[in-house]
């Protein structure tokens, strides 16, 4: 039994093992440690608080079912975040969320506008403003941006998860960043 809540040194792996034996206090500690990151990830992906809470709940229930299969080979956070991403993507599929299609080449028109627009650059990127701007991105750009720039996934991985080519992932990421820059500049 892992029952001592003051023992912060207890590893995620030990807590996972205890949880898989039905120790709810261990599972609660896992929840406490990671729920804000899981919730934030869900919230950024769906941009809706109620939906994000539902998804977080589903993720943790799924986690409880699968936790015995965590072998400690990768970091627990990586494992949990992958589980979360897959769950949210499945939710998108069920909901019929369509990701916008992009070609692997840039959209010349859009780029031309940028050159002529000549908008001033923000002095710094306000985190809250960026958080809001992410919510305004179209779902496909948003997903790639979250996975790559926030969660640190590689393009190959993103390609595998989303079923797109590495080139598409790269091009969507670039467009997401460009769009975010526009959104941030508009707010200044």
């Amino acid at each position: 039994m892992i029952a001592n809540p003051s023992n912060t040194a207890t590893s995620d792996y030990e807590l996972a093992q205890a949880s898989s034996r039905g120790d709810m206090s261990a599972f609660e500690q896992i929840y406490e440690r990671h729920h804000r990151r899981v919730y934030s990830l869900c919230l950024r992906m769906v941009a809706n608080a109620t939906e994000a809470e539902d998804l977080t709940q589903e993720v943790y229930i799924q986690l409880f079912r699968k936790i015995g299969s965590f072998r400690g080979e990768s970091a627990f956070t990586t494992w949990l975040h992958r589980l979360t991403v897959n769950h949210v993507l499945m939710h998108f599929r069920k909901k019929g969320v369509k990701f916008e299609k992009t070609t692997e080449e840039g959209e010349i028109g859009e780029i031309q506008d940028l050159i002529q627009g000549g908008t001033e650059r923000p002095r710094y990127v306000d985190r809250l403003a960026l958080d809001k701007a992410i919510a305004e991105l179209p779902p496909g750009y948003r997903t790639v941006f979250i996975l790559h720039d926030i969660e640190g996934f590689e393009h190959e991985e993103i390609g595998n998860i989303l079923g797109v080519s590495t080139g598409t992932s790269k091009s969507q990421l670039h467009k997401a960043r460009m769009r975010l820059r526009d959104l941030l500049n508009k707010k200044i």
Binding site: H35, R36, Y39, S40, L43, A52, Q57, R127, L130, R177
Partner: peptide, 30 residues
């Protein structure tokens, strides 16, 4: 510079907190 700043800022975005009742819902369902 602008894109680099966005890229940097993305790494330390603020975390959000769900409602306190969420754990209760989860443990009840389990």
């Amino acid at each position: 510079l602008q894109l680099a700043e966005i890229r940097m800022a993305a790494r330390d975005l603020p975390l959000h907190t769900p409602s306190k009742a969420l754990w209760m819902r989860i443990s009840n369902t389990i």
